[in-house]
Design a protein around this nucleic acid. Sequence first.
RNA 1: UCCCCGAUAGCUCAAUUGGUAGAGCGAGCGGCUGUUAACCGCUAGGUUGUAGGUUCGAGUCCUACUCGGGGAGCCA
Length: 503
Amino acid sequence: MAFDNISSIDTLSSKIGQSASIAGWVYNSRSSGKIQFIVIRDGTGLCQCVAEKGRLPDELFEQIKHLGQESSLAVTGDLRADERSPGGVELAITDAQIIHPTADYPITPKSHGIDFLLRHRHLHLRSRRQWAINRVRHTVIDAVRRFFNDNGFTLIDTPIITPVAGEEAASLFELDYYGQAMHLTQTGQLYLEAAALSHGKVYCFGPTFRAEKSKTRRHLTEFWMVEPEVAFTDLPGLLELSENFVWRIVADVLEKNRAELEILEADIEVLEKIKPPFYRLTYTEAVDILTGDKAQQFLAEQLARLNSRKDQVEKKITELEAQQSQSMKKWKADKIAAELIELRGELAELEQKIENNPVHAKLAAEFQWGKDLGGSDETIISSMHDKPVFITHYPRQAKAFYMKKCPENEQVVENFDLIAPAGFGEIIGGSMREDDYETLLERINEHSLNPDNYSWYLDLRKYGSVPHGGFGLGIERTVAWLTGERHIRQCIPFPRMLDKVYI
RNA sequence: UCCCCGAUAGCUCAAUUGGUAGAGCGAGCGGCUGUUAACCGCUAGGUUGUAGGUUCGAGUCCUACUCGGGGAGCCA
């Protein structure tokens, strides 16, 4: 069989009534004596293929019957519309070529633990959920590039190997560069500022590395970040740029990946509401919310909801366990056992949240003006809103040396974070940059940094300095937010995590 | 670095008070012409993470370690 007559599955619905060939892998198969159903995936979709005894050679029928999951094959047959097929189109097999029969595929159609799946990441990428997430990721990245390219930005690639830290954080991966200590980049920003004074509007997009000891669902040691930098702008201008940018990403994903979002059970209705203007809070206002009655009340309500759900789940578990002790049909007993496993999982998760709730409430209530907002604080603010929230004007002492002091209040800087709604948390961090030579030098000294390491960066303030600023958006966090995936390790094909690289 | 939880068949999980380690999926064989994580029957599959301890007896209790998950701090 030549492959030049192969149709991709996503084009089959326009060919109903015709004969077609597809090539792919066995996603699932069921046999029923003289009729077999094989669901084939080809990277563009799923197609249920039917082998009916008599319509194809007996020998082939037997071969197909014994095909394991993920066997590769090409099949030819007649296309017909059928509601019972997953894609609405069904292929009645008349011929097939088995390309590579597979036995003992490790990832079965039943559930698996995360450790097992990550050890089999090379195969896990074929699963429906991972497939859908990676398609959304593709759209997000495409939207990012299109947005900037369509709006007069020039792509500037910044180095991955850098001699100095972008921010003073010590948690960088160190590299032996011909005997000299270098680091893997944690931001392209400083270089981008140089480029912005050449092109006006620039962006960089690439992998970023952080050696922080953060073991949470929001952290990876290697992740992708896009960073625009704009000359002649101000903080309101940056906020407007960010919200239009995020809006475009959401709109593109909604337009191009509706099917994927449905597979992922993402909340499409909520995403459709994501339109500018986003909410704007200052850091001080955010602190007032956190330490005020509103947040405490919100958390108390959340706790009540969690507890009532916990009671429901516990009651259900007790009921099912009681049923289990009675005699019953085997299939029913199995169903109850499966349900129990799921409920116990949910119960464990609820208990964790119930345990964390008062801790988060305490952290929020006792929050002191001047600290950076913690993960749980962001989650609270995030959960209280249905659209992304900007938080601006953080205390100077909590932020990086290059952020521009606010002219009206020198205790704060002109920066912002964008918090995704519904509890996901920060997806963007950005600021206006200090553009005055003397002030920047002061700030470098304040942070006990060596000015010699920043001489070229300081130079930018000596020759035609202008007000400028930019931000960074984390791709994996954005994908996690849009897809409803709770952990960002699922939002990059091959995740690198604290102390853990599987493949 | 700290706190909590866990480790039982290839995978997901059971195992009552400390008393003969089970089920489903997956694999193999058989049956079934409309299945949707199909179903039904049969078969194979185990050093209960490692090391020690308590006990007549340990998957279950104790100690240490290893690995994994979640969270805090820190950070994007």
